[in-house]
Design a protein around this nucleic acid. Sequence first.
DNA 1: TACGATAAATCGGAATTATCAATTTTCTTT
DNA 2: AAAGAAAATTGATAATTCCGATTTATCGTA
Lengths: 305, 305
Amino acid sequence: MILPTLRQLQFLVALGETGSFSRAAEACHVTQPTLSAGIKELEDLFGVALAERESRGATLTHAGEIAVARASALLADAHALVQAVTSAGALFSGPFHLGAIPTIAPFVLPQIVGQLTRRYPDLKLYLTEDRTHRLIDQLRARTLDAAFIALPWEAPGIEVMTLFDDEFLLAAPASHPLSRKNGLSPEDLQGEDVLLLEDGHCLRDHAVSVCRLKAGAGREQVAATSLGTLVNMVAGGLGVSLIPRLAADNGLTLGPDVAVRSFVTPIIGRQVGIAWKSGSPREAEARKLGELVRERLRPDGSAMA
Amino acid sequence: MILPTLRQLQFLVALGETGSFSRAAEACHVTQPTLSAGIKELEDLFGVALAERESRGATLTHAGEIAVARASALLADAHALVQAVTSAGALFSGPFHLGAIPTIAPFVLPQIVGQLTRRYPDLKLYLTEDRTHRLIDQLRARTLDAAFIALPWEAPGIEVMTLFDDEFLLAAPASHPLSRKNGLSPEDLQGEDVLLLEDGHCLRDHAVSVCRLKAGAGREQVAATSLGTLVNMVAGGLGVSLIPRLAADNGLTLGPDVAVRSFVTPIIGRQVGIAWKSGSPREAEARKLGELVRERLRPDGSAMA
DNA sequence: TACGATAAATCGGAATTATCAATTTTCTTT
DNA sequence: AAAGAAAATTGATAATTCCGATTTATCGTA
């Protein structure tokens, strides 16, 4: 079925409102012949006369009245459509799927979720916690819109915005000699039992690579499943560990038996970044999220234990 | 506010249904670049990405989903509009204001109203009974769509379709000599008391003109307000009269005291016609009404008393 | 009746827009 | 690396929209 043009319907509504071809044309910012032609096309399309032409303007026929009524509604709906879709495209409107790796999630997400949902009432925020490669897969599958990950990480087709450096700190039992040593340096780790997260956590890989720890150098048979248990193991005297400052500054419970110390020359073991699929329509929001995290979580050293 | 084109919305819906620019283009009978351009325009208009382009087709964004949902509804409404207006323009749909003069109305309208409302359930028929010049005024003011009138009648800007000749019959008391006279002719009216309708009825003027009755020849102080009372006056012996065959054949109650006879050479006093305003969008229906009356009321002489 | 005045229809040309065929780019898959 | 598939881009052409000027019709007025 051939449909009328919305423009033609606007002409018709204007004609109904003004009762005159000329004034309707003026209202529509077209010339009178243009509007006349538009109305004629409608009449041809419907096979009905919509208006009676008189010497003093025009009046609608019965069919014209019906057409105007429906056209008005249709145009209102069209406006509403534009409105709805435009606002649906506003930042942080509708569902947003956000991921984060386990060594970042508990320390970053609580800091921003509240502010985000408060500021954007239309936002439906879905959170996912998983390991980096799984998050990347989900970004590619568009199951996730953005994810907080630790860098460096290679991922083709994924774009990353680096947010801040996340320094490694030493966590040692309070009674341990390293808790009091001046001028702490990576070499001091040699010979120590360095506890790490279990395999699969990128934090482990980053720690290993930045400190040039040899595989098997530490007590490899002992591995923690989370930063919390890792700290507990340190508190229990099983060894020392490296924990990211992000965690130490943002709610990782340490307890009195664990000392956390920074190295003389900061060990930049990893960066925190936010990642999204290249070309994702949500890129703008991902970047905005990045800005937000930078503001809220930029490390300033004041929180050092 | 700039509105999208219905065509663009069709593109979008097709894209949502097919999940592919190419297949959507095929469904819309355009080439893929055309459809791509259409979608791009929508995205520019809304300021949102509506679809994510992938190697295997495209999937809608959240805003795209919303847009498709609303677009579908809008297109459905547009179709309904075309449907509604087209059927509103069908013959005898919606309100139709029909008039008739008093000497026609009781004998014509009952014959056609039933059939009309039965055949066209969407018809809202409004009937008006008034004198010719009032009806003509109402036609001009578009208060009436059509009217049955008696001809001849001059009316600029009004078109008339002649339906049939309406012969004048003599109505006389059963005891009156003219009730039995052979070869009845107009001259036999000379010297008789010819009763007529009161002034203002066109039937009176037609009777006067066709029979060349002199004003004041009859008993002018006696005049009837309707054909029914006119017949009653004849039955009461006040004089003779001329009544249209249309009335005699279609329900005018005569009674046993009144004889109705036709003239040897039929006196065509008037024609019955249907009139409408020149250029009225209802002309087709008026003509159709005329056809209907011709079929139902063509005089055939069989009903002569 | 004749004469403006007003309003809508008609006409012809110019500018815009829509559409297509061909090509390129970008991914994915082999 | 090559092939294949899908969408974007390009450039030319066809269609349409739109306007200005003119014509037609009707009403009110002299």
